[in-house]
Simulated scan of single mutants.
Amino acid sequence: EEYLAQNNKADKKIYYVNDEKQQSQYIRMFKDNDMDAVILNTMIDSHFIGFMEAENKDVKFLRVDADIIDNMKDDQSKEEDNKGLQEKLEKIIKEATGKDKLKIKVEGLKSESTPAVILLSEESRRFKEMSRSFGGGINTADLFPEEETLVLNSNNTMVKRIAEIYEEDNRKEDAITVANHIYDLALLNQRQLEPDAMVKFIERSNSLLMRLL
């Protein structure tokens, strides 16, 4: 009740953090918008969350990487402009990452310095974690894939430039490279990259740095 009152949460959503280092970007976004998140970083906290939701049917716990709250969105961002930009960026991002099933959304965020964030469905993530705990060592990644959404910030200069240079002569590969890098940076703010992806990320980083010399 204290959290809901302090954060004026009429929708009864309680946002939490379970890894302060890994979720630092999301924490910063909350702080920049005068929002708080509770720290629930022990093994017993997952049971505590389930208990609290069972006891309070109208209360919902969401990890900070599960949603973009309205306070973080730019009220001046025009929906029709974002729609046109989304069509272009969806094509570019999917071509860059090779992930045809990746959900992509374009939002105008107040934090112009943030190009993109990854959101994970709270329900699918919890189900996967529960299955991993009781799966007897069985890999459940294919059985219970996490619902992942890439949110691109239409107020970020790099994001807008990707769509522009993709259409320019001899700049398509540059747009693909930057799009891939933005996606990996968003992933790194949410979790560790897979070994092969990390190797490619480092190689791409070195290549981009060499262009500055």
Score class of each variant (00 low, 15 high):
117 V>C: 05
177 T>L: 11
157 T>F: 10
121 S>R: 14
124 S>G: 10
111 S>T: 14
113 S>V: 10
165 I>W: 08
117 V>L: 10
169 D>A: 10
180 N>Q: 07
202 I>M: 06
142 D>N: 15
105 K>A: 13
159 V>G: 00
208 L>W: 09
162 I>N: 01
119 L>W: 06
199 V>Q: 09
157 T>V: 12
197 A>E: 14
184 D>V: 01
165 I>E: 08
117 V>F: 04
157 T>S: 05
123 E>Y: 15
201 F>H: 13
194 E>F: 09
164 E>Y: 09
174 D>A: 12
165 I>F: 08
175 A>E: 06
110 K>C: 01
129 E>I: 02
128 K>P: 00
181 H>Q: 11
204 R>K: 15
204 R>N: 11
139 N>K: 03
171 R>H: 14
204 R>H: 02
163 A>S: 14
164 E>S: 07
197 A>Y: 01
112 E>Y: 04
196 D>G: 01
189 N>I: 04
183 Y>C: 04
158 M>N: 10
182 I>Q: 03
192 Q>P: 00
207 S>Y: 13
143 L>W: 10
162 I>T: 09
176 I>K: 11
192 Q>I: 06
119 L>C: 08
111 S>G: 06
126 R>K: 10
205 S>N: 11
166 Y>G: 00
131 S>C: 06
180 N>G: 15
134 F>L: 12
190 Q>W: 01
126 R>G: 02
128 K>I: 01
119 L>A: 01
131 S>K: 11
108 G>Q: 04
178 V>S: 09
162 I>R: 02
160 K>L: 07
193 L>Y: 04
118 I>W: 00
154 S>W: 07
123 E>M: 13
204 R>E: 13
118 I>V: 08
207 S>M: 13
169 D>F: 07
165 I>K: 10
177 T>N: 15
207 S>G: 14
201 F>P: 00
154 S>D: 04
176 I>L: 12
166 Y>H: 12
193 L>F: 05
160 K>N: 07
136 G>P: 08
129 E>Q: 12
149 T>M: 11
199 V>E: 06
150 L>Q: 01
111 S>F: 05
145 P>E: 09
124 S>C: 09
175 A>M: 12
118 I>F: 01
151 V>Q: 05
179 A>E: 07
194 E>P: 03
206 N>C: 01
199 V>A: 08
148 E>Q: 08
174 D>T: 14
177 T>S: 15
114 T>Y: 02
115 P>G: 06
187 L>I: 13
160 K>E: 04
140 T>R: 09
132 R>E: 09
110 K>F: 02
204 R>Q: 15
178 V>G: 08
149 T>D: 03
134 F>C: 05
203 E>Y: 05
178 V>E: 12
176 I>N: 04
193 L>N: 03
